[in-house]
Design a protein around this nucleic acid. Structure first.
Lengths: 136, 136
DNA sequence: GACTTTCTACGACGGTCGTAGTAGATTGCG
DNA sequence: CGCAATCTACTACGACCGTCGTAGAAAGTC
């Protein structure tokens, strides 16, 4: 049950994030970026991560240059949404409401964020009958 | 670095949830509950999970009865909060605001939840006077 | 062309996790 | 008491993941 096609590990996610932030990158580019972030991995480690990400179809590579260039195949939004969904399913049986409530209770927000939340909630209020679309 | 004391796996979490829901339970109790949920594990699998959870201090056991009785040592709230924090840290660099925004955008809410959100936001609003937050 | 650097392919290792089997201890029953 | 059921301890195995090393191919340098 549940395809559970094994999501991303932490290190893999870090690599993906680099690709999101700086776009198409070589192994060395990613390595450099990670180094700058304090992570200190070997070149081949990053290479492995990228290879695995490609096997999972999270990135694609192309070789027109000397070295392979990697690009993310999914947007950050898409991935975070999926992770979120998993977490919501696991912890709250799929109900996002309680999660948001808990988050709102537990975290500090800037006035700007509160503002935006206001607007969002209001909008939700009015279009409270939006249909459920499931784009695969 | 990073202690990264390896959090809970999916199966471990399921077990914990059973303990939260039905309180002190034996291996067999948990097994039964999981079976009722459709999961079909072996007795010893559940036993292993409980043992590992105990090793990680998520549960504690006591043996006054014939069989060990296990109890959760942390509240559901505590665990979900921690998982959430991890996810927020990983995906949003620790800023919960954007997460909430995304969640609110992506999920459907019942009118009740929207109501409660309204109230929460309002409350936040009034508390947000002495807010001197600097997001990272 | 020989040497150095860089990249790629592949294998590997240890730890976590989900899963479960086996053996031995404990308890209950007739 | 003797046996069956149940429980516990220990071991194991395969997949995933983070981490690299080594060997060989490709490219640049002098």
């Amino acid at each position: 049950m549940a395809d559970k096609q094994y999501e991303l590990g932490d290190a893999e996610l870090e690599v993906l994030k680099v690709l999101w932030e700086r776009g198409a990158s070589t192994v060395r580019d990613v390595l450099q970026a990670l180094h700058d972030q304090g992570r200190n991995q070997a070149y081949t480690t990053v290479q492995t991560l990228l290879t695995r990400l490609e096997a999972k179809s999270f990135v694609r590579s192309d070789k027109s240059e000397f070295a392979f260039v990697y690009r993310a195949r999914l947007t950050r939004d898409r991935v975070t949404r999926s992770r979120l969904k998993t977490l919501v399913a696991q912890l709250y049986d799929g109900a996002a409401g309680p999660l948001v409530l808990q988050l709102v209770r537990m975290e500090q927000f800037t006035t700007d964020e509160i503002d935006e939340l206001h607007q969002l909630i209001d909008r939700l209020d009015s279009e409270a009958d939006t249909k459920n679309q499931e784009p695969r």
